[in-house]
Nucleic acid binder design. Structure first.
Length: 654
RNA sequence: GCCCACGUAGCUCAGUGGUGGAGCACUUCCUUGGUAAGGAAGAGGUCAUCGGUUCAAUCCCGAUCGUGGGCUCCA
C-alpha cells in the first residue's frame, strides 16, 4: 500500500502499490489535479509524476506555483531551451542548465556568441517544441554507459561532469524529443505545461564552473512561471525596476554623476545629491549620539606598516591604494609608504590606545562617517551600488566579553529602528569562518560565533547560516533588506573581532586590577551611504519622503507680477528651516508644474493674484496632483512640521 | 580581471567611407498666461582617446579608457 495526499487538506488516500506511475494514480483519483501538479515529494525527495511509487511510500503532490514546482517548471524550460539551441546550432555543446531564483539559464560552448536575433529565434523554436508537447522521459544508466553515450555525442562537458560525480551515484538521463541530458530531475510530465509562460531574457558570458581560468561559455537567461499572468507580472516588475534605476533617476534628478575623466567608481555628488546625503548623515549623527556613540574622525591614509600590523596588507592588499612620495628624508629619499584606508578601524584603535582604559570606561562606541577606498575589479562597478570610494556609517564598539551580547542586542534594535523609518523589511544571515585567508585561533572564532548566535537567539530573530562567508578577522551577522519591489540588498552588518584587539594590544584594567583584553565589534547600519542612497532612490522611485527630499517645497508664480511676494514666501520658509526653491521664470504655470512634478518635489506652492491679495499660498501635492485649500504661510509651515514630526518623532526640523 | 554589446550636442537618440542630424535643455526676442510642455530666432560637436588601412575614416581594423548585461543559485 501507499499513501497519496491528493491535495494539502484532503484526507490521504491509501492505494495499492501496483506498479502504476504517479501520473496514472492521479488520473484514476482526480484528473483535474493534473492541471496544477508538476511533480511529487516522497520522503523529502522530489520525483517525477512518471515515477512508480513503492510500497509504503507517502506521496505529497507538488503544485506548479509552489517554490519547488516553479523549480521543476524552470528546469524543464532550460531543457527545452537546450533542445531548441541544438536544433538551431548543431555545433553548440551543452554544459549545465539549472533553475535559479526567478528563472533559469543554460550555458553553451559555441564558436560565435549568440546575438539578440538568435535569442528571438531560440524562443520561437522553444514555442514550437512546447506546442508539440513532448514528454520528459527518465532513464537510469550505469556510469560507463553514460560516458559512452555523451562521448559519442561529442558532449565533453557532460563527460567531465560524470567523471566528477562520486562513485556509486545513480545517473539519470532525461530525454525530451531528440534531446538527451544528464540530469537529476525531476521534470514536468510534458512540455505543454510551459505554454505561454516562458520568456528568454538575456545573453551573457559565464565561465565553465564559474572559474575564470576556464573557458568562457555563452549563457542564456530565461524565466518561466506557472501561468501567463504570473509571467506578465514578473516582466512588469522588471520594467518597473528599469524605470527606477538609480543611475537613470540620479541623472534625471541631478543628484550625482560618475565621469570617465575623474575615474571609474568615483561618485561626484551634485548639489541636490550632496544635500540628500547631508540630510541622511545628519540623521545618523543625531541617532548615534542619542545611543551613546562618540563621533570620531581618522585620517584618509595611514603608514603602510600599520596596515601590515593589522593584517590588511597581508589579506587585502590587492584592493588597496598605496602612495609614496620621494623626498630628501633620512631613509635615502625613498619616502614613507602610506596606505589609503579601505576600512576605518585602525584610527579607532589608536584612539582607544591613546589612554590607559578602565573597565569602568567600557563599552566605548566610536562612530565615524568614514570614507574608504577599495579598488574593486572594473567589471563589478555599478552606479552607486558598487564603487571604489564610499562612506560607511561605521562604528567600532570596544567592550568586555561579558558585554558583547548586550551590545549586539542594542545594535539589532538600532537596525530595526532605522529599517522601520524607511519602510524596509529585512532578514538576518550569520556568516562563519572562511576556509582560506583568515586570522585568529579556532577558540576565538568559536567564542565570537557563539556571541552572535546568542544575541540572535535572545532577540528571537530567525537567521540563515552562510558557512565560510565571514570576514577574515571574524564571524558576522548580515542584514538583508527588502525594497518596494521585493528585491534584497545587503546593508547592515555586525562583525565580531577577537583578532585586532590582540594585534594592537588593546587592554583595559579590570576590577581585579589586572590587564584584560577587550573585544571589538565592527558594525554599520546603512552600510555604504552611496549604496544606501542608490537603494533609496529605487525604493522611493526618486520621490523621497518630505524629511529626505533635497527640495521640499517649490514656489511657482503665475506671472512675474507675483515674483516679489513669491520671494518673500520663500524667505519665510527658509527661515523656518524648510528647503525651498522659487521658480520665478517667465514661463507658464503649466510648464512650471510639469517640471516640479518630474523633479518629484513634495510640495508646490502656486502663487497668483489671489494669494498675493489674501497673503496665502495654494499648495499642490506631488502625489496624484492633489491640492490643498489655500492657507497662510504660517499654517503651511506648521503643516510641514507636523508631517515631519510623524516620521521622525522629534521636534527638530531637517 | 574575463566574455559580449555599446560610446555621436548638456540630456535622449537618429545617421553616413567624401563639409554631421532631430527633440528637449541653453541664449535672445515676443508673450503676462491659475494646476503636467506658448511662439520665433540663435548658439552649441576633434562623432571617447591613440594608432593603422585608405586618395579620403565619425563609419573599416587594432589598442586604450569608460559604460551596460553577465561571470558555480552547481548534472
Amino acid at each position: 500500500m501507499l499513501t497519496l495526499h491528493l491535495t494539502e487538506n484532503s484526507p490521504p488516500l491509501s492505494l495499492a502499490a501496483d506498479g502504476k506511475t504517479l501520473f496514472e494514480h492521479i488520473v484514476e483519483q482526480d484528473k483535474s489535479r493534473l492541471r496544477d501538479v508538476v511533480a511529487a515529494r516522497i520522503g523529502g525527495n522530489l520525483v517525477d509524476l512518471q515515477s512508480v511509487p513503492a510500497d509504503g511510500d507517502e506521496v505529497f503532490l507538488v503544485e506548479k506555483d509552489s517554490e519547488a514546482g516553479l523549480e521543476v517548471l524552470r528546469h524543464s524550460a532550460a531543457h527545452i531551451m537546450a533542445e531548441a539551441v541544438q536544433i538551431l546550432f548543431p555545433d553548440a555543446k551543452v554544459t549545465i542548465g539549472p533553475a535559479i531564483k526567478d528563472g533559469f539559464y543554460y550555458d553553451f560552448d559555441i564558436e560565435n556568441p549568440f546575438t539578440p536575433e538568435d535569442l528571438r529565434a531560440i524562443e520561437k523554436q522553444m514555442k514550437t517544441l512546447i506546442k508539440k508537447g513532448r514528454n520528459f522521459v527518465r532513464r537510469e544508466v550505469g556510469r560507463q554507459e553514460a560516458i559512452d553515450l555523451f562521448t559519442g555525442m561529442g558532449e565533453e562537458y557532460k563527460v567531465e561532469l560524470i567523471n566528477d560525480l562520486p562513485e556509486g551515484e545513480t545517473l539519470s538521463l532525461y530525454q525530451s524529443g531528440d534531446f538527451v541530458d544528464l540530469c537529476r530531475g525531476p521534470h514536468l510530465p510534458n512540455a505543454s505545461y510551459l505554454k505561454g509562460s516562458v520568456k528568454l531574457l538575456s545573453i551573457a558570458g559565464a565561465y565553465w564552473r564559474g572559474n575564470e581560468n576556464n573557458r568562457m561559455l555563452q549563457r542564456i537567461y530565461g524565466t518561466a512561471f506557472a501561468d501567463k499572468e504570473a509571467l506578465q507580472q514578473h516582466l512588469f516588475l522588471i520594467e518597473e525596476a528599469k524605470k527606477r534605476d538609480h543611475r537613470k533617476l540620479g541623472k534625471e534628478l541631478d543628484l550625482f554623476s560618475i565621469q570617465d575623466e575623474a575615474g571609474a567608481g568615483f561618485v561626484i555628488w551634485h548639489p541636490k545629491g550632496a544635500l540628500l546625503r547631508t540630510i541622511l548623515e545628519d540623521y545618523e549623527k543625531r541617532q548615534h549620539l542619542k545611543k551613546g556613540y562618540q563621533i570620531v574622525m581618522g585620517p584618509q591614509m595611514l603608514k603602510a606598516d600599520l596596515w601590515k600590523r593589522s593584517g590588511h596588507f597581508e589579506n587585502y592588499r590587492e584592493n588597496m591604494y598605496f602612495t609614496r612620495i620621494k623626498d630628501d628624508s633620512a631613509d635615502g629619499g625613498e619616502g614613507q609608504e602610506y596606505g589609503i584606508k579601505p576600512m576605518n578601524c585602525l584610527a579607532h584603535m589608536l584612539i582607544y590606545n591613546s589612554h590607559l582604559r578602565s573597565y569602568r570606561d567600557l563599552p566605548l562606541r566610536y562612530f565615524e562617517l568614514g570614507t574608504v577606498h577599495r579598488h574593486e575589479p572594473s567589471g563589478v562597478l555599478h552606479g552607486l551600488m558598487r564603487v571604489r570610494c564610499f562612506t560607511q556609517d561605521d562604528a567600532h564598539i570596544i567592550c568586555m566579553p561579558e558585554q558583547l551580547q548586550e551590545e549586539i542586542t542594542a545594535i539589532l534594535e538600532f537596525v530595526a529602528e532605522v529599517m522601520n523609518l524607511f519602510g524596509f523589511s529585512y532578514s538576518m544571515e550569520l556568516s562563519t569562518r572562511p576556509e582560506e585567508k583568515s586570522i585568529g585561533s579556532d577558540a576565538d572564532w568559536e567564542r565570537a560565533t557563539q556571541a552572535l548566535i546568542q544575541a540572535l537567539t535572545v532577540n528571537q530573530l530567525e537567521y540563515e547560516v552562510n558557512a565560510g562567508d565571514g570576514a577574515f578577522y571574524g564571524p558576522k551577522i548580515d542584514v538583508k533588506l527588502k525594497d518596494a519591489l521585493g528585491r534584497e540588498w545587503q546593508c547592515a552588518t555586525i562583525q565580531c573581532d577577537f583578532t585586532l584587539p590582540e594585534r594592537f594590544d588593546l587592554s583595559y584594567i579590570g576590577s581585579d586590577g589586572e590587564k584584560h583584553r577587550p573585544v571589538m565589534l565592527h558594525r554599520v547600519i546603512l552600510g555604504s551611504i552611496e549604496r544606501f542612497i542608490g537603494i533609496l532612490i529605487e525604493h522611493y522611485a526618486g520621490a523621497f519622503p518630505l524629511w529626505l527630499a533635497p527640495e521640499q517645497v517649490r514656489i511657482l508664480t503665475v506671472t512675474d507680477a507675483h515674483n516679489e511676494y513669491g520671494a518673500q514666501v520663500a524667505e519665510l520658509l527658509r527661515d523656518a528651516d524648510i528647503r525651498v526653491e522659487a521658480d520665478l521664470r517667465n514661463e507658464k504655470l503649466g510648464k512650471k508644474i510639469r517640471e516640479a512634478q518630474l523633479e518629484k518635489v513634495p510640495y508646490m506652492l502656486v502663487i497668483g493674484d489671489q494669494e498675493v491679495s489674501s497673503k496665502t499660498v495654494a499648495p499642490r501635492l506631488r502625489k496624484q496632483g492633489e491640492t490643498l485649500e489655500s492657507m497662510s504661510v504660517e499654517h503651511f509651515i506648521s503643516h510641514l512640521q507636523d508631517e515631519l514630526k510623524v516620521v521622525l518623532g522629534g521636534s527638530h526640523s531637517c
